Simulated scan of single mutants.
Amino acid sequence: MSDSSAIAAFRSVTTATITTILLKRGLRNVWMRGLVPLAPGQERLVGRAFTLRFVPAREDLATPESWSSPTSTRAAIEAMPEGCIAVVDAMGVTDAGIFGDILCARMGKRGVTALVTDGVVRDVAGVMGTRLPVWCAGVAAPPSVAGLTFVGWQEPVGCGGVAIFPDDLIVVDDDGAVVIPAAIVEEVKDACLEQERLEAWLMSEVDKGVPLPGLYPPNAETRARYEKSRGS
């Protein structure tokens, strides 16, 4: 399955549906805690994870001079491929902004789909002005080096209590951010699309006044009516 077909498919699937389908496959820890869209009304977005990792600040490393280091957020941004979703492990630190408007503007110029982090951003008005979609834990004025040390990119990270590996598929919408392991994207896609079709039909039944017992979850009779409605 090409990335373009996966991305097109998951743009029509809610993160709520994805978590349900993954739960049925034994994957419970896929929703990143504490992440909300920075701006209201952002569309659902899908992309491969490009990971970045911070550790606690250490005074000899977390300095403004570190921003010019070969291992820096600036260098990581220049390595981001078009269409990726940047997933930043900020360890849940909420008093040091990992990115501001200039870095977000550069990400937008590189065609990055979105920024997802369990940390916070700074220069919030400027960040929103870049129109880079952001899911984060809030905003803070101090720079990243006030509380964090950047250590690398494209390695496994934890974000919002969830393990994220490079190239996992990330889906974000109003309910937050969800990861789909790269190895099962196709099977999850098919199951999610079917679940969305079923739930749309169930909603139409609710609109007709059908009571919930036996409808949701559907019993054998309801399933048969659903299949008949599809011409199966």
Results as ranks from 00 to 15, higher is better:
residue 48 R to S: 08
residue 48 R to N: 11
residue 51 T to K: 06
residue 57 A to F: 03
residue 58 R to L: 13
residue 58 R to K: 12
residue 60 D to F: 00
residue 60 D to M: 00
residue 60 D to V: 00
residue 61 L to P: 02
residue 63 T to N: 01
residue 64 P to N: 02
residue 65 E to S: 08
residue 67 W to I: 07
residue 67 W to H: 10
residue 68 S to D: 12
residue 69 S to E: 11
residue 70 P to A: 11
residue 70 P to V: 09
residue 76 A to F: 10
residue 76 A to V: 10
residue 79 A to Q: 15
residue 79 A to E: 15
residue 81 P to G: 12
residue 85 I to Y: 04
residue 85 I to V: 06
residue 88 V to C: 03
residue 91 M to A: 12
residue 92 G to F: 01
residue 95 D to C: 02
residue 97 G to V: 02
residue 98 I to N: 09
residue 98 I to D: 01
residue 98 I to K: 04
residue 98 I to Y: 07
residue 99 F to P: 01
residue 99 F to K: 00
residue 99 F to L: 13
residue 100 G to E: 09
residue 100 G to N: 09
residue 103 L to Q: 03
residue 104 C to F: 14
residue 105 A to N: 15
residue 105 A to D: 15
residue 106 R to V: 04
residue 108 G to Y: 13
residue 109 K to N: 11
residue 109 K to I: 07
residue 110 R to D: 12
residue 110 R to E: 13
residue 111 G to M: 11
residue 112 V to C: 07
residue 112 V to F: 01
residue 112 V to L: 11
residue 115 L to C: 04
residue 115 L to P: 02
residue 115 L to N: 03
residue 117 T to I: 02
residue 117 T to V: 05
residue 119 G to S: 13
residue 119 G to T: 02
residue 120 V to M: 04
residue 121 V to N: 12
residue 121 V to Y: 01
residue 123 D to M: 13
residue 123 D to V: 06
residue 126 G to Y: 06
residue 126 G to A: 11
residue 127 V to Q: 00
residue 129 G to V: 06
residue 140 A to E: 05
